[in-house]
Structure formats: structure tokens, C-alpha cells
Design a protein around this nucleic acid. Structure first.
Lengths: 184, 184
DNA sequence: GATCACATGTAAGAAGTTACATGATTCT
DNA sequence: AGAATCATGTAACTTCTTACATGTGATC
């Protein structure tokens, strides 16, 4: 059960927002800012089948459409698995090697878990990121002399990306807190 | 022949810098800023074998060391394949879906191809990135109202990352040109 | 003598890629 | 009628993950 690729969770998240067919999902990946996912049928249909086999989604023939269209909706188990995925703590390793996963989780977060959880996620993300940046900087300082110029610059790009994400996370926390005040 | 994973090229690039064993390569991935690559033996040793089968590297028993150590060095074919990989043009699709590949290529670039090629790469990278940013911004503007807040923020993070990379690329071009002037 | 670091591998399984295959419906 | 779009799928291949397996040499 506790086994799913990032694509699987992306599908799950989109189906969570509203029931959809494989073709709908492909179109989202090919035409929106979620273009980092593959829209190939060889990826999507097998992934949907796996989700269905695990009982996380269920597909029903779309009777409104005349075509051979199967619309998938989420099951209760699917809801649970999805929320469990979203609730995972943000680790150092996530921040270093799975930024894409983290961003996907966050993108689905406030609809499924609410603003409070989103803020908690951002805080964890900011903390892990803030801790990691000085490590990278130290590494750069102490190894710069042995590295080729382009290697050095590539590492600097990485550091700047982390700094950008840190600023973004703090700014996003502020957005949520601003919103909270407005409500009161 | 024209078939290789990113890991394969990372190995090729490191072996290009100096001959190394599988264990050396694993240590680099586990202990340096190249930590985004897997240091697991199940990834590295098969990848090295594939490179050897394709004739891009050749392993020799290390007679200096008493242990069972194989040191890989690059062949002429390997040099060619490596340089051909580095010389590929930077496409829009690379910028969107394969930033990691691009950064790896750049990190190895000036040693293998020289500063002039590095500048060309950065210019292409900057151009494709600069073209793509307004598309994302337009997308955000026109879809912001239908998107959940965290989705909107996640997209904004993506845009800021592209902007960071664009600034970085232009700054890096300036570094190379500065260096060129100093030489004269 | 035990443990740690060195050093290389294999096997099973998961998941993606590319390319092919098929058929229905709508538009021109 | 032909082309484009809708819609779903399969098959072969590649590569990665996790876990297991094995043995050497140095250090305590």
C-alpha cells in the first residue's frame, strides 16, 4: 500500500480535486504548468490501473459521453492515503533530493488539509532549507579552489535556488498569516 | 550507442576528470554537493558495466592497491560521446523538465569544451529561460482565480526559481567575459 | 578477535520511455 | 470521405530501488 510514485500522487491529487478520466489527466500534464509530468499514455494508464488495484481510485464508464471514457473518482482509502502522503514531515533529504515531491505536496495541501497544515509544512521546509544552505556554502568555500569554474558556478546556482525557496517559504507563511488576520 | 541515463553521464564526466573506481564514484555522490545522485551499488556498478560494454570507459585492476579494485578510465569513444552530450543545444524542454541535466552538463563544460562553449551554453540557457518565464506568468494570471492558494504559491515558487536561474546565467556570462578581458 | 572501512557485485521488482495498435466521433 | 481529436490501451526495453551477498585489509 505504502508504495506509489510521484506520478501516482499527482494523479491522486488531481482526482481528489474532481473526478477525471485518463485523457483529462493527460491534457492537464500537456497543457498546464504541471508539464513536468509525462502525459504519455504508457505512463498514465498503467499508473491509474495501479491506483485502482490498490483501491485508491475507482473508474466508472462515463454514460453522459458517448465515447469510451472512464472517469476516476477517489475512494475513502484513497483520501486516507493521499492525506497521509501530504502529512509526512519535511526531511533534509526531501529538501535536497525531492524538491519536486515537496512542491507537489504543497500545491495540493490547503484544499486537502487546510491553511494550518500548509503553514506547518512551510515552516518545516524553511527550517530544513535554512539549515542546509550554510552547509553548501561551506562546501563551496573549502572546495572552490579544486573545482573548475563551471562547476563552481553550477553549485552557486544551486545555492541561489535554495535561497530563493527559503525567501518564498517565508513570504508564503506571511501570506497565510495575513489571511488569517483578515478573517478575524 | 546514443543511449545513456543522467547517472551514466555523471560517471563519464567524473572519470573524464580523472580515472576512478566505482567506490570512488560512490563516495563522491555520498559526500559532496553531487549528492542528488544515488550512491547505491545497485545503480553505480551496473551503470559502469553498461558504459564499459558500450566502449566508453575501460576498467583496469588497480595493481597498486592490494584490494579488489577496478579503476575506470575514458576511451576515445567515451571522450567523443561525452563531448557530443555536452554540445547538445539547450531546448525549451530541457529548461522545463531537465534542469538537472543542464546543470550537470554545465558543471563539466569548461574543462571539456572551454570557456567559449560555456558562454554559448549560458546564452542559450538564458534565452530559453527568458522566453519561458512570461508564459508561466501569463498562465498564473489567467488561472489564479481557479487555483487553490497553495497551488498558486507553488507556481510562484517555480517562476521565482526560473528568474533566479536567469539572473545566475547572466551573471555567469559576465564572469566569463570578465576573465577573458583579464587575459588580454 | 572483532569491527569498521574498503570494494564489488547480483536479484527481484517497480516504474518510466518509446512506439505501436485500435477504434469512435466530430469537423470540414 | 478524410483528417483531426477523443480515448484507451499494450509490449519491449531501460534503469532505478532495495536488499542481499561476499570477501579483504586495517584498526582497536
Amino acid at each position: 500500500m505504502e508504495n506509489d510514485s510521484l506520478l501516482g500522487f499527482a494523479l491522486l491529487g488531481l482526482i481528489h480535486q474532481q473526478p477525471m478520466s485518463g485523457y483529462d489527466l493527460r491534457k492537464i500534464f500537456s497543457s498546464t504548468a504541471m508539464g513536468s509530468f509525462s502525459d504519455s499514455p504508457g505512463a498514465i494508464y498503467p499508473a491509474l490501473r495501479r491506483l485502482e488495484e490498490r483501491g485508491l481510485v475507482r473508474g466508472k464508464a462515463d454514460e453522459a459521453a458517448s465515447r469510451n471514457r472512464r472517469v476516476f473518482h477517489m475512494t475513502t482509502d484513497g483520501q486516507e492515503a493521499f492525506k497521509a502522503w501530504l502529512k509526512q514531515p519535511v526531511t533534509r533529504d526531501d529538501v535536497i533530493r525531492r524538491t519536486g515531491d515537496l512542491m507537489l505536496r504543497f500545491a495540493f495541501m490547503d484544499q486537502a488539509l487546510g491553511a494550518k497544515r500548509a503553514i506547518r509544512f512551510l515552516s518545516q521546509f524553511a527550517e530544513e532549507t535554512a539549515d542546509y544552505i550554510p552547509i553548501l556554502k561551506l562546501y563551496l568555500e573549502s572546495h572552490a579552489s579544486e573545482m573548475p569554474l563551471s562547476g563552481r558556478l553550477a553549485l552557486e546556482c544551486g545555492i541561489q535556488e535554495y535561497e530563493t525557496r527559503l525567501r518564498w517559504a517565508n513570504a508564503s507563511i506571511a501570506v497565510y498569516e495575513q489571511k488569517r488576520k483578515e478573517k478575524k
